[in-house]
């Protein structure tokens, strides 16, 4: 029973840490499927987290915080879009630039506006997301097996957590069952064909980039309005890159993305749990190895040793109309 409770606790924190990964990886899915690579997920998430924290602190409204997060993240996406779609600059370079601009300006602006060492003020309960308790969650708590699963694992998360998991089938539906999704995927594989069909490649890619911005906004808002009560400098701490790794690990498919994010989240939760506790048979596993594992797994996958990750064919290439 003790073991069972440990498992439930680890799975619970797995869900908690994988939510921002899911949002960000789905964000990446939309742009990369449209042929715009985005290593600026980290920066957009950080900018959104800051905007959410700052606006929620000033207005006291969690909704305004979320909206601000989305707004900033979409603006940053549009900068990326302008550089890489309109100006046909390097998508990688633009993503790197956005990461740096955000990393610096969140600290500078946060310090100038709030003077708390790059943090935004701690939020009251009203200004952040509340956890949702499912009906009868308290009543069934003591039922063996089912009780902890229902009341700890499924119930008691933030509303954004459920949004994230619902977005997975929704993204699948958008990408694979709508006209927009078909065109979006086509523009990532063969933009020339889409252009020939009389559809604007530029506008389609811009819409994909905006989708990415919206989802990164959710990721950032989750970090500063749900997971913690306010923005802390550098709070994304590489999550954007892990999301990118998850996106590749999932071979650019929505359901795989959810599984990859849960796997990476599980490794993270396990690493925290294992700190100082030796594993049976294996002994003490260095925490650093656990932390590096998502990246190592992604590299092994990329090397083609666990299936092959084939990126969208036109990814990373700016579209130039034949002249």
């Amino acid at each position: 029973m003790e073991f069972f409770h440990t498992i439930v606790a680890i799975l619970e924190s797995t869900i908690r840490v994988s939510v921002p990964l899911i949002f960000a990886a789905l964000a990446g899915l939309f742009t990369e499927r449209a042929g715009v690579f985005d290593i600026g997920l980290e920066g957009k998430m950080l900018g959104a987290a800051f905007a959410a924290g700052a606006v929620a602190a000033v207005t006291g409204s969690v909704l305004m915080g979320l909206l601000a997060a989305i707004l900033i993240s979409v603006l940053l996406s549009l900068v990326h879009g302008y550089a890489s779609i309109t100006q046909r600059g390097s998508q990688i370079v633009s993503g790197v630039a956005i990461n740096f601009i955000v990393a610096g300006s969140t600290v500078i602006l946060g310090e100038a506006w709030f003077r708390q060492g790059g943090r935004t003020p701690a939020l009251d309960a009203d200004a952040r997301f509340q956890t949702v308790t499912f009906p009868f969650a308290d009543a069934v708590k003591d039922v063996p097996i089912f009780g902890p699963i229902y009341s700890n694992l499924l119930s008691g998360h933030f509303i954004l957590t459920y949004v994230a998991f619902l977005l997975v089938p929704f993204s699948w539906w958008v990408l694979y069952r709508t006209r927009f999704g078909l065109r979006l995927r086509a523009v990532g594989e063969n933009p020339g064909a889409v252009d020939t069909a009389g559809i604007s490649v530029i506008w389609l890619r811009y819409r994909a980039v905006i989708c990415c911005g919206i989802l990164c906004g959710f990721a950032g808002a989750y970090l500063s309005l749900a997971m913690s009560a306010g923005f802390v400098k550098g709070m994304t701490a590489g999550k954007g890159y892990i999301a990118l790794a998850a996106l590749i690990f999932a071979k650019w498919r929505p359901f795989n993305i959810m599984m990859a994010c849960l796997l990476f989240g599980f490794l993270d939760a396990l690493a925290i749990r294992l700190q100082g506790n030796p594993l049976p048979f294996i002994g003490q596993v260095p925490v650093q190895l656990m932390q590096a594992l998502p990246y190592i797994l992604t590299v092994i996958l990329l090397a083609g040793f666990i299936g092959k990750a084939v990126p969208p064919k036109a990814g990373g290439v700016p579209y130039v109309k034949e002249r």
Binding site: S90, V93, I98, N99, F100, I101, A103, G118
Partner: peptide, 16 residues
């Protein structure tokens, strides 16, 4: 951190 911003802006304007 101002340098980080400038660095990002240089990458953006001189690169992308």
């Amino acid at each position: 951190d101002m340098i980080v911003i400038i660095q990002g802006l240089v990458i953006l304007f001189a690169g992308a």
